[in-house]
Design a protein around this nucleic acid. Structure first.
Lengths: 212, 212
DNA sequence: CACACAATCGGACCGAAGTCCGTTTAGTAC
DNA sequence: GTACTAAACGGACTTCGGTCCGATTGTGTG
């Protein structure tokens, strides 16, 4: 590989080729613009490829699928939100009691959905939701808060169930089809979380569990 | 339309043509068989049409979409379950207190998912879940039980949120990907419902709601 | 600068859902 | 039995997500 006189080659990361990263940026830009202009449902992948000035194969090689492209378009606002959760001010960030943080978290997600519902729905298509990076972060965050607030509960399962109430599909159904205003959804979330984390009269689940 | 001597034509319901209903039955039979044999994800609509001995156009004219066909295949076991909920024995049917009925309902849905997850997932594709007949029944049922157990709550919103924890997508994710056993999912549901319907220390949601 | 090679490109291609429309047929009236 | 019509039929067609592979090009080397 090298003789004694050259600089040692330390796992030289090749780095992406110039045209590759340029095309990646072009595609993201075109996708973001078209999604915003016409709505994600009215933009095909061919269309994005053409607008970006690349072949369709390139779009799929870079992003793998339509859902993944939508996730990539969202990733900026997404990391911003995650940053606020992890290092931001209370009650969203650390400092507030877990119940309040959980409430603030759900309200934050609902706000996020309110601005990008269609795009987030596209990013969650076909089970992509569960394998996405943000979902992993959310799951860990909610489970941690639950465990902190009530060490006796099944935080893993409850976290996943609580997150199920914050999907884009349900949000769109509630807002558009059933015409429930955003504020009522937030109130519903507060109600749900408050009840889940209220002090439990001992042994309720066990007593009712007889129906199994 | 008629002279005075003929029998009056009283909004004569035409009824379906013989070939139409025969084809409908054939398609349902073929779809049920193929879905069961190969799994819903490995059966195309062309394939079902061929197996039923009809053209693809006929399949779509009868059922409208893949999701709707899956719903039709499920409808028998579905109505059975609904019958049990409405007129069956307690705690699933009437007679038990609402909290226990709600727990039994969720456990019943989870059992249903355990036997038909893939097919139910196919039936819920693309927002079809919310517009399906069963979802309407479930929503009304859960909202009624919630209102009965706690007249002060937002039963509509809570019902929709609780149902969100019983989707096929989440079930498949929890069972297959995260390897959570059925019994733990049921325990999670019991825990969730018990907490939501436990006696509320007054004013929790309002106190916490300051984070909005 | 010429070369080599690996990474990238791009568009032809594929399978599947859903639509369209010319053709066929069940049911009815005579 | 014949004629008529509304309904149903069926398969060609369109669109779209995703794959494949031969052509192209960026980049490091001598």
């Amino acid at each position: 590989m090298s003789n004694g006189f050259e600089l040692p080659v330390i796992a030289e990361e090749p780095g992406p080729r110039a045209d590759a990263s340029r095309n990646r940026a072009r595609i993201l830009e075109a996708a973001a613009r078209l999604f915003a202009e016409r709505g994600p449902d009215c933009v095909s992948m061919d269309c994005i490829a053409e607008a970006a000035g690349v072949g369709k194969g390139t779009v799929f090689r870079r992003f793998g699928s339509r859902a993944a492209l939508a996730q990539a378009v969202l990733s900026e606002s997404e990391s911003e939100f995650q940053e606020t959760i992890i290092r931001g001010a209370a009650p969203l960030g650390p400092g507030a009691p877990p119940c309040e943080r959980l409430i603030a978290f759900g309200e934050g997600v609902l706000d996020h959905l309110d601005s990008h519902a269609a795009l987030i729905a596209a990013a969650e298509l076909g089970g992509a939701r569960f394998s996405s990076a943000p979902y992993g972060v959310y799951r860990a965050h909610v489970a941690l808060l639950l465990a902190e607030a009530d060490p006796g509960c099944d935080a893993e399962a409850l976290a996943e169930m609580l997150l199920a109430t914050l999907t884009a599909d349900l949000f769109i159904h509630m807002r558009a089809l059933r015409e429930i205003p955003l504020e009522r959804l937030k109130a519903g979330w507060r109600e749900l979380v408050s009840r889940v984390l209220a002090e439990q009269p001992a042994g309720i689940a066990e007593a009712a569990g007889a129906s199994a």
